[in-house]
């Protein structure tokens, strides 16, 4: 067999062929995606009690009802806002406590699950799976089971959200921990500090700004979660909302008050935590 001389490599043709192939793949992917979206929509539409196109004109019916009930009795609204304020405080409390407890749990779990920092390096996979598990269980599942055992009220929601928070933040925290500088830890180790002291004095000061930022973000999410859990019976503003909703037409003015409270709370805490996070970032980039 004689060696053929290499044909001159046609860069242009090769590039065009590559592009064409890439376009083809992209096109196929796009077509599959569109197909999935359309068929999924049709399927969901078919399984729904009311169809999409029938319901579309009625989408504003409920807000219109609420407004119609509220406008003639606008003078009652401040009274309702005051009436439901304690329930709102309960919802925010549930979110705050569960964020607090969840953050503490996440700190411990994440330190135990980070290579180089873990107290028991062999158990790292165990703690990782534990965090995955906590993250995967939807809050509503834990809350409903606990409502059955503990009765309605804020405690089941608090426990449920705290567990989920510990898992969700634990994952984020352990990513932060992995970037922590190990030198302070080694220094503390050399002077005989215990594991707890090494973590508290060597790692936590480095990572606490990131922790705080993530915890604030989680707090926002948890306010929404605690409102939703209230709706299935765990107290707070969600519970009141369901009660006012079930009174039916003509009484939606109280529901309107709750909508306003919930909306304002979410927006206020959203802005607040965004502001604090922004401040932390700028103060650090200035060279703290």
């Amino acid at each position: 067999m004689t060696q053929m001389p290499d044909a001159p490599f046609d860069t242009r043709a090769h590039y065009l062929a590559l592009t064409a192939r890439r376009r083809l793949y992209g096109g196929i992917l796009m077509a599959v995606f569109v197909l999935l979206m359309v068929s999924g929509f049709l399927l969901a539409d078919g399984r729904n009690a009311g169809g999409f196109w029938d319901g579309l004109p009625h989408i504003l019916d409920f807000p219109a009802d609420v407004v119609r009930d509220t406008i003639p009795r606008l003078n009652l609204l401040p009274g309702y806002l005051v009436k439901y304020f304690p329930a709102l405080v309960e919802t925010v409390n549930i979110a705050a406590v569960s964020t607090l407890l969840g953050t503490l749990g996440a700190m411990v779990l994440s330190l135990l699950a980070t290579r180089g920092l873990a107290r028991w390096p062999r158990l790292i996979p165990v703690f990782r799976r534990l965090m995955d598990l906590l993250r995967a269980v939807p809050e509503i599942v834990v809350a409903l089971v606990l409502i059955f055992v503990l009765g309605g009220g804020p405690v089941p929601a608090m426990i449920a959200i705290a567990l989920h928070t510990a898992g969700a933040l634990g994952k984020l925290f352990s990513e932060v921990n992995e970037n922590a500088d190990l030198k302070p830890v080694e220094g503390l180790h050399s002077v005989g500090a215990t594991w707890l002291q090494r973590m508290w004095l060597g790692v936590v000061p480095q990572v606490s700004p990131n922790y705080l930022s993530y915890a604030l973000m989680r707090f926002e999410i948890n306010i929404r979660a605690s409102a939703i859990l209230g709706f299935v019976g765990a107290g707070g503003i969600g519970y009141e909302l369901r009660n006012t909703m079930s009174w039916g037409q003509g009484k939606f003015d109280e529901a309107a008050a709750i909508f306003i409270l919930l909306f304002l709370t979410i927006v206020v805490f959203d802005q607040l935590s965004g502001h604090v996070r922004h401040m932390m970032i700028t103060s650090r980039s200035k060279g703290h």
């Binding site: 729904n48 169809g51 019916d61």
Partner: peptide, 9 residues
């Protein structure tokens, strides 16, 4: 309220 219960909602 508009679409009834179901996955689409």
């Amino acid at each position: 309220r508009a679409f009834g219960p179901g996955p689409l909602t």
